[in-house]
């Protein structure tokens, strides 16, 4: 299998939204690549696929799956794997990534990224699923760390050890979502910098940045919600700086999926990402 741990350029990218189509084609700078949610491009035709074809002629593309349920107890859905293969075959993206999470139980797709405990059983299952995905797609995938709101009594290892071991067993790369690190660390009471320092950064093929909302739990502690609906906050930019100083430059994605802003607002975030990359020694 080709080593595709860093196939995307180490530039800012954005999660593509159709309302920005004309502006992106006119002048996307400083954006150097685009990411799409795989499941929105699995229809038989129409405007979504036409736009994707046109964009892929101009930009390196990243296909980001949100529906494979790699952390699920049940087997992966063969129909969905086949749809992903069809999309990756014709689009030939620079990267394919999915989540360390589950979203399907029996036949019900729950349309959310749900958490799993980290232990030897779940490790074996996730590694098996990642291998299956890589076999079917014929390419290396990146696996993304989730945002967490709670912990499992039957977890036996840290998330960073879990991800390191999945990568070691399967050869997959990792997608490091720095906002998710900040959200989970705040919610569960550990150090976000400590998480980054324990993370196998040499495996990171892409970094995600997004906005979160702030609430409170029953005990009055901050409870951060990974909403992808606003600007990236300053502490997350600081955590990105901490990360890049250790990892070196990486492809940096701005995720803004809800209350999607106009292009100038989104572009301002990508300019900030470009500045974060500029100060990193290559």
């Amino acid at each position: 299998m080709l080593d595709q741990t860093r196939p995307l350029p180490a530039l800012p990218g954005v999660g593509y939204k159709p309302q920005h189509y004309a502006e992106i084609l006119a002048d996307a700078s400083p954006v150097g690549w685009l990411e799409i949610h795989a499941e929105n491009y699995m229809g038989a035709g129409g405007r979504p696929l036409a736009q994707l074809r046109a964009l892929s002629e101009r930009f390196p593309m990243s296909v980001h799956g949100v529906g494979l349920s790699i952390g699920g107890e049940g087997p992966l859905d063969p129909d969905h794997l086949a749809r992903l293969r069809t999309l990756c075959d014709w689009l030939d993206p620079a990267s394919f990534s999915e989540h360390l999470a589950w979203s399907t139980h029996e036949s019900a797709f729950l349309n959310d990224l749900l958490p799993l405990p980290y232990n030897s059983q779940t490790l074996a299952r996730v590694a098996e699923h990642v291998e299956q995905v890589q076999d079917v797609l014929g390419r290396q995938m990146l696996l993304e760390n989730p945002s967490s709101y709670l912990a499992f009594d039957d977890s036996e290892m840290s998330e960073t050890d879990f991800l390191r071991e999945v990568s070691a067993r399967t050869g997959c790369g990792l997608l490091l979502d720095v906002n998710n690190v900040f959200v989970s660390a705040t919610n569960l009471g550990y150090s976000p910098q400590g998480y980054i320092d324990a993370f196998p950064l040499e495996k990171v093929g892409e970094i995600h940045l997004g906005g979160h909302d702030e609430e409170e739990d029953d005990a009055g502690r901050p409870l951060l919600i990974d909403s992808h609906g606003r600007e990236v906050v300053d502490p997350v930019w600081a955590l990105l700086g901490h990360t890049l100083a250790r990892s070196g430059p990486r492809p940096l994605l701005i995720e803004w999926d809800n209350d999607v802003p106009d292009w100038p607002t989104l572009r301002a975030e990508t300019l900030r990402a470009a500045r974060a990359l500029e100060v990193v020694p290559a």
Binding site: A151, D217, D218
Partner: peptide
């Protein structure tokens, strides 16, 4: 089997997923 990360039951933290 779910906790809030500080030694107490998850409580309304589970509702975040339910609500999402």
């Amino acid at each position: 089997g779910l906790s809030d990360g500080f030694g107490a039951p998850a409580g309304r933290r589970f509702s975040v997923y339910r609500n999402n």
